[in-house]
Design a protein around this nucleic acid. Sequence first.
DNA 1: GACCAGGCACATC
DNA 2: GATGTGCATGGT
Length: 218
Amino acid sequence: MSREGLLMEIFERLFKAFGPQHWWPGDTPFEVMVGAVLTQNTNWANVEKAISNLKREGLMDPGSLGAVSLERLSQLIRPAGYYNIKARRLKNLLDLVNNGFSGDLNALFSLDTPRLRELLLGVKGIGPETADSIILYAARKPVFVVDAYTFRVMERHGLVSGPCSYDELQEIFLRNLKEDTDLFSEYHALIVRLCKTYCLRSPKCQKCPLEDLLPQRR
DNA sequence: GACCAGGCACATC
DNA sequence: GATGTGCATGGT
């Protein structure tokens, strides 16, 4: 099967097995953006506690969150872990939104994708996965989000041979799939769902929807 | 108690 | 360019 065919086959299997995932969980684009930073190397259940703290305090908007002290912010997001460094990262991101775009997320998100990605990556604490999550799930523009699970699945199914960079893996998806925000949104969410359900530490995807797509072992 | 989770920056070689 | 380390909580 061609790489393009295999990528769509994997998507269709996952969609059939799990259905739509309704990602990203979050009431507003701003909340999605905050969640993208908070979830760095962190279980989503812990992120939800931090988000709920911010909402309870009425801080889930660029102006309010920009005005709160670093110390108070770090205490509120404590359940999400790495709370000191993440508070700093959120502040860095808010500086971009508030100073560069007067707190208007729509203005920031109306930039073309390469420019938006460049600006986000310029924020200290925003790397490729966080930037792309914001672009896809908050700005709703078609980029493919790569994460540790994506590497795991693509390696297992022989779509990459040996080590490959974030950008290289992303290119494989972008070149072989139709550029479609809804497709990319579901695809990434389904990969996460697959790994959480079946492929966490097992060497084989036993009984998983992709089991018979495994490449031959040597 | 060990291990893991929807990364990133920075130091060092 | 590759590899190692700090950052930290809460669930299994």
